[in-house]
Design a protein around this nucleic acid. Sequence first.
DNA 1: CGCATACTTGACTCTATTCAAGGTTAGTGG
DNA 2: CCACTAACCTTGAATAGAGTCAAGTATGCG
Lengths: 241, 241
Amino acid sequence: MPATSPAREKCRTCRLHSLCLPRELPQGDTSELARIVQTRRPMKRGTYVLQAGGHFQSIFAVRTGSVKTSTLLPSGDEHISGFHLPGEILGLDAIASRSHPSTSVTLETSHVCEIPFTELEHLSERIPALQRQLLRIMSRELSTEQSTTHLLARRSAEQRLAMVLLDFSQRFANRGLSARHFRLPMSRSDLANYLGLAPETMSRTFRRLEARGLLSIAGKAVVILDPIALAELVDGASGGS
Amino acid sequence: MPATSPAREKCRTCRLHSLCLPRELPQGDTSELARIVQTRRPMKRGTYVLQAGGHFQSIFAVRTGSVKTSTLLPSGDEHISGFHLPGEILGLDAIASRSHPSTSVTLETSHVCEIPFTELEHLSERIPALQRQLLRIMSRELSTEQSTTHLLARRSAEQRLAMVLLDFSQRFANRGLSARHFRLPMSRSDLANYLGLAPETMSRTFRRLEARGLLSIAGKAVVILDPIALAELVDGASGGS
DNA sequence: CGCATACTTGACTCTATTCAAGGTTAGTGG
DNA sequence: CCACTAACCTTGAATAGAGTCAAGTATGCG
């Protein structure tokens, strides 16, 4: 019989622990954390992980699958603020206001872990490494958001698409998957919405990049054919030097 | 002779303490915090508070004046990611990477407080309320960034301008200043850059809103004449219902 | 007072949007 | 396994909003 119960092992043995909350935590602290983490049954596509306006109680970690986060604007249309892959944390934007400013929905069948925030706060009072990790994650989230902002400001449709594809390529690679062949989990119109473009523009832009031999796309399956040219497209910027 | 030294008083007696780090901290804890806060001599317009690529050591709080934060894109042009008013914190996006992803410069003569981060972390291990406040500030920052993203995605020049003016109006009001008459601290082209617009478009958009009687602008002085119409313009969204 | 910078204005161009229609895919039920 | 339906995606033509280029005007600093 092992010294630690299966529940205490779940974070340590999770393939994602080096990307997720337990990152860089000593093993003992990881077990402590695992005790308050609630794993849930799989959620099928289109299930709400959290809803805008709802009372903030927990943060969530994506374990498998993928999630999109969006806000309903007063005008009635939604704006998608991000897509989340395994190991990424949801709900951190609700700490200040104690209620969720945005809604998160699964894009496919997904496993999500729930971490009750009050317990996490108490735990991090006892475990300074956990407190530091929380701050690090939020800080990383902040710079990611800033990159998204740069993505939208004064960039052409081609640049936006190139940026987001390279971003996904990188994130898949971080998860041990191929950086060149992957499957986008969201619909074209979700991606268009995220990039601040019309779906039609998205479609045409895909074709144009395909015609130039930078990538190939069939449905949701993407193949990056020329990552260097894509990166140059991004860096080339508005004016171009 | 008072029980606490002047240094220990500086945060408690600062007019901004209810907006800044000490917010909701008990008085004793505020004094503890004040001990590690370094106030500096005024910085004149155009001084770097922190520079992209620089080693992360401290976060900074604006005490008077204003600051802009920008990133130099690989293409050579800069993108301004935010403007900071008194009581706002700079540098939180550097915690994860331990080096600043962006550059912050004063827009006018400003006072800035420096808070060494290692000391702040140690202090917050002893003071749970301070830890909570740090997380709250970062969370608030996250939702602010998300609003900026919404601002840029698929909104017209008019809507972007209306949004940013209402945002400043609100932030000035929070600082006890007029919500209707204020002075924008940045240049037109900085504002245009922030909104992802060409300076010329900015200029024309100001004129158009002025012609419709929504506001009046003379140099950097803005008067909001019809806040309701401005808000409706923002909410009216792309399609309009 | 003069120079430099910042701002404005006009004319033209171009990219992305909109509207409209047709084609594909995926998921459902027989 | 196939047929059917409803999303989803693509394509085309016309339009509009913002960008660019270029010149002129205000503003402020030395």
